[in-house]
């Protein structure tokens, strides 16, 4: 790879930053020039943020905010149109016993399930806005990302054509770990282009770093910068198929990159921790971390999301506890 700006364009601000074309060489120079992460400091900071006590009205606000930030997800080989329809029904009416419950931000499904999700949503389909429920599709040979570029691009275009408002792509971790940053960069730029609809607008692009496979915090920081430079609208921690999935320190680190990028360029990039967030208590720690790192501005659906399936039920149980004054149980929410 030499100069890929001829074919498709990466983020304009990235070109300014590099003062010229993005080449493999200056990409490597840039990413490897980023200072290393103080792992102990990062983990202590994350642990510190996790000790905040959020009670009563703040907790109620937090629970409602969490619901509004959830990408309700089903990514199983056994997914059926019926499963997707019931997922959408849950997204529209999370708690049938309480009409004041907010709706989730999006449903997240495999590409071939997008038409069923769109159909089931009907008038509730937000189509890329914040006023309804969006459809997110995982693409680019999710979760491994092991396929040729042509396959990844057609996978993406297919989902966008079917009506997906958001695309969750995976980066090529193999190429990244082998140091072929240019290839990873190229792919993100190309997938971004594949997100373009017939009318010239773009589906939102979330770039999954799969931090559980990147091994070090330094790699996470580099991959975050790389994804943002290439034009990702969101950086997402994990596919949920690899353990460890989202952790608080990793999310904090990615939020710090987003904060730095905002200071540098004024652009706001979204963050989506996904996988392993199952309890309201955990989710509230993430809210605190977002608010303390990038600011409360980020606590809206186009800048922060939770990728989760079982989290919603736990939040609903907590919500019912706050409304009724007694503890609720799994019999009072849907079976996932």
């Amino acid at each position: 790879m030499t100069d890929i700006t001829q074919a498709v364009a990466p983020r304009a601000t990235a070109l300014e930053l590099f003062d010229g074309p993005v080449t493999d060489a200056n990409l490597r120079r840039y990413l490897e020039g980023i200072p290393g992460v103080d792992a102990v400091g990062l983990e202590q900071r994350a642990a510190g943020l996790g000790t905040r006590s959020i009670k009563t009205t703040s907790k109620k606000w937090a629970l409602d905010t969490i619901i509004g930030l959830i990408d309700l997800t089903t990514l199983e080989g056994a997914d059926t149109p019926g499963k997707v329809r019931s997922l959408v029904a849950k997204a529209i009416t999370p708690d049938a016993t309480d009409a004041s419950t907010p709706r989730v931000a999006a449903v997240c499904v495999y590409g071939d399930m997008v038409p069923y999700a769109v159909e089931a949503l009907g008038a509730h389909h937000a189509k890329g806005t914040d006023s309804g429920i969006n459809v997110a599709a995982v693409a680019t040979a999710f979760p491994s990302g092991r396929a040729s570029l042509a396959i990844k691009l057609s996978d993406t275009a297919d989902a966008v054509d079917a009506g997906a408002d958001e695309i969750d792509m995976v980066i090529d971790r193999g190429a990244f770990l082998a140091g072929r940053y240019g290839q990873v960069f190229d792919e993100i730029v190309a997938v971004k282009e594949a997100c373009r609809r017939a009318d010239g607008t773009y589906a939102h692009l979330k770039v999954i770093l799969e931090t559980g496979e990147l091994n070090t915090y330094d790699n996470v920081r580099r991959a975050s910068w790389l994804s943002i430079l290439a034009g990702g609208d969101f950086i997402k921690t994990s596919t949920g198929k690899v353990s460890p999935a989202a952790t608080l320190p990793v999310t904090l680190l990615m939020l710090e990159v987003v904060r730095d990028w905002h200071r540098l360029t004024g652009e706001k990039i979204g963050v989506k921790p996904a996988g392993g967030i199952r309890t309201s208590k955990d989710a509230i720690k993430y809210l605190v971390t977002v608010a303390e790192t990038v600011g409360e501005d980020w606590l809206q659906p186009h800048l922060f999301r939770f990728g989760a399936s079982s989290l919603l039920n736990d939040v609903l149980l907590q919500r019912q506890k706050m409304t009724t004054g007694h503890y609720s149980g799994a019999d009072y929410v849907t079976i996932d």
Partner: peptide
């Protein structure tokens, strides 16, 4: 009282 009203008991 918390156990008596607990919906999962």
């Amino acid at each position: 009282p918390w156990l008596a009203s607990h919906a999962d008991v």
